[in-house]
Amino acid sequence: MTPKRKQRLLLVLLLIAGIGLAVTLAILALQENMNLFYSTTQVSNGEAPENRLFRLGGMVVDGSVNRTEGDITVRFELTDTAQHVPVMFSGILPDLFREGQGIVAQGMLNEDGVFVASEVLAKHDENYMPPEITESIERAKNTNTAQ
């Protein structure tokens, strides 16, 4: 490589390194805002903003979904396996909403510490399987526990 090309290569590398450093610093400074939602533990610890809309993410606790007769209001609890937060929502739930499903809800905490959601989004996992396989896994699990 000629000295001139070497110099250009060096300049290009320096440029990328510089920009990379700047972006890394900016992202680190904005770390909190880069997250889409607060976890239930953060909310329980009072880290979530007060009197302002924010997003809460977690898994729907098994057996916690409570639908009121003749009302579209649904009550359920979200968890990150450490802390539970009760949620209230009246509206249309996404197709994937079910117990054990990851959920991201937008709303505000009321005085009783209940998260009143205005929007509920479902987070799906990265696993793709035909239904027959999951059924057979379930069956295998059940026979194992039965033994």
Binding site: M34, N35, L36, F37, K123, E126, N127, M129, P130
Partner: peptide, 20 residues
């Protein structure tokens, strides 16, 4: 790095891809 609504990688995971 952050919590997102989008799920994680499926095929390029280091362990075997979690897709049938």
């Amino acid at each position: 790095w952050w919590n997102t609504l989008h799920q994680g990688a499926t095929v390029t995971k280091f362990d075997s891809p979690s897709i049938a």
